[in-house]
Amino acid sequence: MSLTWYLVASALIFSIGAGGVLVRRNPLVILLCIELMLNAANLALVAFSRAHGNMDGQMFALIVMVVAACEVAVGLGLIVALFRRRLPIDVDELRELSG
């Protein structure tokens, strides 16, 4: 199985995630789409790691997973805070930094 296929799949998943960030308005779903993009990057990293026969890419992918978990924790905390303050859960309505 040629490694090019993995990279094309990675590019496709990344594009779908980027399109989702643009199309969707619910911040929860936008976070999910960011996860999609991070996972696509992970797939590319692991594929390049396989191409070189070197473990560094896999370690990079694991670190990316840690960063993604942090991003999820903070993002979901923000969404819960929005919900507590009874603000609309909609990025089109939330255009100002001041609450």
């Binding site: 199985m1 090019t4 990279l7 396989r50 191409a51 070189h52 026969g53």
Partner: peptide, 12 residues
């Protein structure tokens, strides 16, 4: 990259 058309390097 020539490695992309192969299945990758030989692995340990």
């Amino acid at each position: 990259l020539t490695a992309l058309d192969t299945e990758g390097a030989s692995l340990e």
